[in-house]
Amino acid sequence: MNIIMILYYILCAYIAFLLVWNFIKEKENKDHMLHYLLVLVPLVLRLFRIK
């Protein structure tokens, strides 16, 4: 794996972290909580090199 590809995995991890952070902060709106989880799905699967 080359450096740029590794940087992309780090980028994905960073965005996933931001989503989780927002998800934890969000306590009111169930709709928004669902949305954070939905956007997390592809990021997490990419991080685990599933898809």
């Binding site: 960073y14 965005i15 931001l18 989503l19 952070w21 927002n22 928004h32 949305h35 954070y36 939905l38 956007v39 799905v41 592809p42």
Partner: peptide, 18 residues
């Protein structure tokens, strides 16, 4: 700053996924 940006972008990001 990036946390708040992701929060602001949430509707658009969710749209792309769904």
């Amino acid at each position: 700053l990036s946390r708040d940006t992701v929060k602001r972008l949430l509707p658009l990001l969710t749209t792309m996924v769904v």
